[in-house]
């Protein structure tokens, strides 16, 4: 039997996969429109972002406590490096994106409303220039995140359909 990721790691992976993909689509969708979809999607963007931040921190702890299954011994060094590097980036982005969102809304002088009546405290002082830079970073990193996820899915399917080496099953099985 193929070695698999620990059960908490697998649950967190698939739950967060759904949330992060939803989040990227919500972000792209809300910026595309001036209809009532705009405030509706924006109202979802903040609580889901906070949820992803909390889950990502739990996941980081799970990752540090449970060693993931080893990569196949015959995987070329370049693919090993790509696998390791992309996973560092994925972890960095799933923690950084919600933090940047929270920080930029703080710097923009906006109330960080998770839902009506529940407002998070600001984590940066009001500074419109800082807001402008963080907001630009939030958008650019979102595109980078989406491309990284496409690469991640492509690699997972490559393991599943072409190499058939058990890497896909270690998370999906």
């Amino acid at each position: 039997m193929t070695p698999r990721f620990a059960l908490p790691a697998r649950i967190l992976h698939w739950l967060m996969a759904a949330l992060i993909l939803a989040m990227l689509l919500i972000g792209a969708g809300m910026l595309s429109t001036t209809t009532a979809r705009y405030p509706e999607l924006l109202a979802w963007h903040r609580p889901i972002g906070l949820g992803i931040l909390i889950l990502a921190l739990i996941r980081l702890a799970v990752r540090l406590m449970h060693r993931p299954p080893p990569l196949p011994a015959d995987l070329p060094p370049l693919q090993v490096a790509a696998a390791k590097g992309s996973h560092y980036l994925l972890y960095a982005l799933m923690i950084a994106m919600p933090l940047i969102g929270w920080a930029m809304q703080s710097a923009g002088g906006y109330p960080v409303t998770i839902w009506k009546g529940f407002v998070l405290f600001p984590i940066l002082p009001h500074d419109i220039v800082v807001y402008g830079l963080l907001r630009a970073a939030h958008g650019l990193l979102a595109y980078a995140f989406f491309l990284l996820i496409l690469g991640h899915i492509g690699a997972a399917l490559f393991h599943a359909l072409v190499r058939r080496d058990g890497v896909f099953e270690s998370m999906a099985g």
């Binding site: 429109t33 001036t34 705009y38 923009g108 807001y131 630009a136």
Partner: peptide, 22 residues
């Protein structure tokens, strides 16, 4: 329909002027 449009347009204006600097 003007309300969400005002909200979205103000946000776009705010993003731009923030990056340009006050």
């Amino acid at each position: 329909p003007l309300l969400p449009a005002r909200s979205a347009a103000y946000a776009a204006s705010f993003r731009r002027r923030a990056l340009e600097g006050p």
